[in-house]
Amino acid sequence: MFTGIVQARGKVLAIEKKPGLHTLQIALSPELLEGLQTGASVANNGVCLTVTQVGHDRAFFDVMEETLKLTNLGSLQVGDEVNLERSLTFGKEVGGHILSGHIHTQAKLINVDSAESHYDLLFELPETWMKYVFYKGFIGINGCSLTVGEVMANRFKIHLIPETLRLTNLGDYQPGMHVNIEIDSQTQTIVDTVERVLAQRLTS
């Protein structure tokens, strides 16, 4: 489990591509490497990945074919940066909202509205997932716990503060690029339950 509070950005140092599998070598700061062991979970752009090897300045992760297709990890290039968060430990403060590290879909960045007073991102989401997106609700974007600022048809807007831009890779994204989306689990459960109850009433 993760908090959605990105701890650092890590540069992609190497990508070994094999049939149905990519092995990523991601640079980690000394703070993130401290105590990190093989088998530990680290979120990369919100995707829960297992550490397969630890080096003096990096960690190795295997990414399976299904994950490569579902997430933006499949489009990574050497030199790109990913958002990193180590898994939640007992007693740690949860500053965002609980994320599982299991990505539901991707959203396309439509527009960046940048000014001295604000930095807004407008995303387009597949229609089937928009029923879980609500004004002031939570959503996970590239592993960041964020609050939805506006909802319209199959699009939603996020307002970013300077600290989020500094810590994460969201400020690097340009229109046309895709981000990983994890829907808030509580919201999904409530919406699905209401739909099921209404459907049962209509058929009874």
Rank of each mutant, 00 (worst) to 15 (best):
K11R: 14
K108A: 09
I181K: 08
F2M: 05
S29C: 07
N44A: 09
F123D: 03
E116Y: 05
G46Y: 03
D62Y: 07
I103T: 10
T193R: 12
D120K: 13
D113C: 03
T50G: 04
E116D: 12
G101P: 13
Q7L: 10
L84N: 09
L68E: 07
T164I: 07
G4V: 11
T187L: 08
S114Q: 11
D184G: 03
S114K: 15
H22T: 06
L21H: 05
L122N: 01
R9W: 04
H56V: 14
E127N: 10
I103H: 03
I181C: 12
S100P: 01
D57S: 12
Q106F: 07
V151Y: 06
L99V: 09
K69R: 13
H22C: 11
G39A: 02
H118R: 11
T147A: 11
S145M: 11
K108M: 14
G79T: 08
M152F: 15
G143I: 11
N72F: 08
N45V: 04
G95P: 03
R86L: 10
E31N: 04
T168D: 00
R166Y: 09
V197A: 07
A199P: 00
E16T: 11
H178K: 13
G10A: 09
E182W: 13
Y132F: 14
T189L: 13
N180R: 12
R166G: 04
L198S: 01
T203A: 01
I190P: 00
L13G: 00
G79C: 05
V63Q: 01
K157R: 15
T187C: 11
F90V: 07
V82Q: 02
K92S: 15
V54P: 04
M64D: 06
S185C: 02
E124M: 07
G35P: 00
T147F: 11
N83C: 01
F61R: 02
G137C: 04
N83H: 04
L13E: 10
A14T: 04
D62F: 05
H118M: 01
L28W: 12
F90K: 06
E150A: 10
H159V: 11
P30F: 13
E65Q: 15
N142C: 08
